[in-house]
């Protein structure tokens, strides 16, 4: 029972990124807006650097109905509903506008309902985009052929692995924190990350070239417990979702804006942005990931709903 003067509801929101990444400030902005609009009735505490625990553990706690939340990705949600993994595939959506519309598509709506009713996950928003994933290497890469035999660090989920494999590289599963020394000691040849990850991890010290493939627009999911969410007053529910979408789109926009500045800074620090990249070849190669994982049909269906041409 809450003591006098304390928030009636508290959400403990966990993410794995460093507190200096733009996401952290974004989540805090969301927390502040919710607290103001609910007049202190609903408080969100943001935990950076996975202080509350491992992502998968938090997801289980969410399913058990705890007052915790997690910033996660479609690869992990894809464990529950395999089709969701497409959002993590190569060249699935390429603009923020596309991401915004995604939530309203019938197939996606169906997934969200299933996540809530069958698995206990309430997805507040997936308007949070970390930016475009590019390849960062020590050899210039212009086409999928140039990636051949290069060991590229990739998160361990199947959709990540197959996407990077489809684009020509050899995926290597390593934890985020192991990347720097692994690059330094040539355990791996490169990484695929968003621009904003590079300065924080100081990867420019151990990497030379950027190939702007933009192969994945990294859409994140903000997930809390459906059970806990349903117990909130309807007014609070509305505020929580609205503010999450709003803060998400705002943060995503400023991240994509900031990529230009980050890029300029990296060039100043000696990185080389590779020219004449054969994006069409990468786009074509990427198709294979969906086929291998047998989710090409799902992708085509959602693309059709979005009005994308094949």
């Amino acid at each position: 029972t809450p003591a006098f003067g304390q928030a009636k509801y508290t959400l403990k929101f966990n993410h794995v990124l460093s507190p200096r990444e733009p996401y952290h400030a974004g989540f805090q902005k969301w927390a502040k807006a919710v607290e103001e609009r609910t007049k202190g009735g609903l408080k969100i505490e943001v935990f950076a650097s996975a202080q509350l625990g491992v992502e998968e553990d938090i997801l289980e706690q969410i399913r058990a109905g705890a007052n915790v939340g997690q910033n996660t990705d479609s690869a992990r949600m894809g464990m529950y509903i395999p089709g969701i993994a497409i959002m993590n595939g190569p060249y699935f959506v390429e603009t923020l506008g596309g991401v915004e519309r995604l939530k309203k598509m019938p197939t996606v709506q169906g997934w969200l309902d299933e996540l809530a009713n069958k698995f206990g996950f309430k997805v507040l928003s997936f308007g949070w985009v970390q930016g475009y994933r590019h390849f960062f290497t020590n050899k210039p890469v212009r086409s999928p052929d140039d990636l051949k035999g290069q060991r590229i660090r990739t998160p361990p989920a199947p959709i990540w692995q197959e996407s990077v494999r489809a684009l020509g590289a050899t995926p290597v599963a390593l934890a985020f924190g192991e990347m720097y020394p692994a690059l330094q000691q040539k355990v791996i040849d490169g990484v695929e990350l968003v621009y904003n990850n590079i300065p924080g991890g100081r990867f420019y010290e151990v990497l030379k070239y950027v190939t702007e493939t933009g192969h994945i627009m990294l859409v994140n999911f903000e997930v809390i417990s459906a059970k806990w969410f349903n117990a909130l007053p309807p007014e609070y529910q509305k505020i929580l979702v609205e503010e999450c979408d709003k803060a998400g789109l705002e943060t995503s926009r400023s991240i994509i804006e900031s990529e230009k500045a980050v890029k300029a800074d990296l060039i100043k620090r000696g990185m080389v942005v590779v020219d004449k990249v054969d994006i069409a070849a990468f786009r074509k190669a990427g198709e294979k990931a969906y086929e291998v994982l047998k989710i090409a049909d799902v992708k085509d269906k959602v693309h059709k709903e979005l009005g994308f041409k094949k």
């Binding site: 950076a48 720097y180 100081r202 010290e205």
Partner: peptide
């Protein structure tokens, strides 16, 4: 590595 990653300090 952990300190450098959280604090965005050069691991090198």
């Amino acid at each position: 590595i952990l300190y450098g990653t959280i604090g965005q300090v050069s691991i090198g």
